[in-house]
Amino acid sequence: MALIALLSNPRSTGNRAILPRIRSYCAQHSEIFHYEVEDVDQIGDALRTISRVEPKVLVVNGGDGTVQMTLTELYHGGHFEGTPPPLAVLPNGKTNLIALDLGASGDPIAALERVLAIARGGVEAHVVSRELISLSSGEANEKPVLGMFLGGAGLADSILFCRNKVYPLGLPNGLSHALTFVAVVLSLVIGIRAAFLPPRPRPVTVSLIRQGVIQGSFALLIVTTLQRMLLNTQTSTAEAQPGALKLMMVNHSPFSLVRAVAAGVSGKLGHQRLAGVHVERGDEIRIEGERSSVILDGEVYEARAGGAIVLTQTSPMPFLRLAA
């Protein structure tokens, strides 16, 4: 039996520099069972092996794709008897939104040390529940993919712009994200199309079961079960609204974007109506539009021709929160 099972993907970008330190740390601490995969398709087999050591905490060390595949396998695979151990995520990806939501930031080794200290003292006080986003086309007998943060419309275009145009420059992640944000704002203000700016978002139709239909072109479209969105903004919505899926859409307008960011940073987002800003909450969301594509925890998904992207919430899963 191990206190911690650490699942690492050596091929993730962040691990190219940190993995030797991770291996050295694990070699010095026998309470950690370290399992490395060569490809995300091996994660199911990895979890079957990990279940045999009965860890108190499962830690993922990899990029967004590794985290997403682990969540999907944990939910669908039945690799653990009953409820799986609480999941912790090391800050190792490009965006680290899940890790940040759970209180992990900075050096991955420091985060792993914190997880080990919690596991030694008892994890119960640090376990939190989070629902997941289940993404499918709505067809029968389809295995959905699971995640916790989805970006669509202009945000998906901006993420792809950052990934394809900015990251190759080799700049630090924080500077890359800042440059992308500036490019997004410039494209909104100038209103022109250029190779050095993100493309103009296509119109989409977003349907919520109880709240109705919203149509338009949006600079941001976010669906999440996390407590925070981009730029450290809160995702609080009115308590009377049912559903764990938190939706925020911002019209393709610089004034709407500024209002949304200001309200989010001040903690007022979702507590008052803002022109051009839509904040809702539900248990099923449909996204439709020509060549509609979304990014769920770093992975791109596109609706089939004439089809839709259907998002539903799952039952809660346990996670380990590192912050006090």
Rank of each mutant, 00 (worst) to 15 (best):
S12Q: 10
E54I: 01
Q313G: 14
A153P: 05
H271D: 13
G106C: 06
F80L: 05
D101T: 10
L47M: 11
V261T: 14
H79G: 04
A303I: 09
Q234R: 07
L186V: 14
L19D: 12
I50T: 08
L47R: 08
Q68V: 10
H126N: 15
G151Y: 12
A238M: 15
F255L: 15
Y301G: 10
A153Y: 08
V184N: 01
Q28L: 08
P199N: 11
H252E: 06
A46H: 02
S8H: 02
I18L: 08
S51T: 04
I118M: 07
S8M: 14
V115A: 01
N96F: 07
L74V: 04
I22Y: 03
L74R: 02
N164W: 02
A305G: 11
G44Q: 09
L90Y: 07
T314E: 12
R228C: 12
R228F: 07
A2C: 11
E139A: 13
E280A: 15
S30R: 07
N96W: 13
L116P: 00
A303W: 04
L47N: 12
D107W: 04
E239T: 09
V277P: 04
I192M: 06
L58C: 09
V182D: 13
A2P: 09
P84A: 06
N61V: 00
H126F: 05
N96P: 11
D41A: 13
A27N: 10
A195R: 15
A119Q: 07
R321N: 10
L116C: 04
G154W: 02
M248C: 07
V206Q: 00
V53C: 06
L155E: 04
P168H: 14
E54L: 08
A238C: 07
V123P: 02
T49Q: 07
A2F: 00
G44W: 05
A305L: 14
V294D: 01
T205S: 13
R210A: 09
K56V: 03
G216N: 14
V277Y: 06
T224P: 05
G267V: 15
H278T: 06
Q241R: 14
T72I: 07
A156E: 15
L231E: 10
L179Y: 04
V265T: 13
V294A: 08
L226E: 01
I190Y: 03
A323E: 15
P254N: 08
E131H: 14
L226W: 01
T237N: 04
R16L: 14
S8Q: 11
S129L: 12
F80W: 11
L71C: 01
E290G: 11
P10G: 02
H278W: 02
E142M: 05
S51C: 12
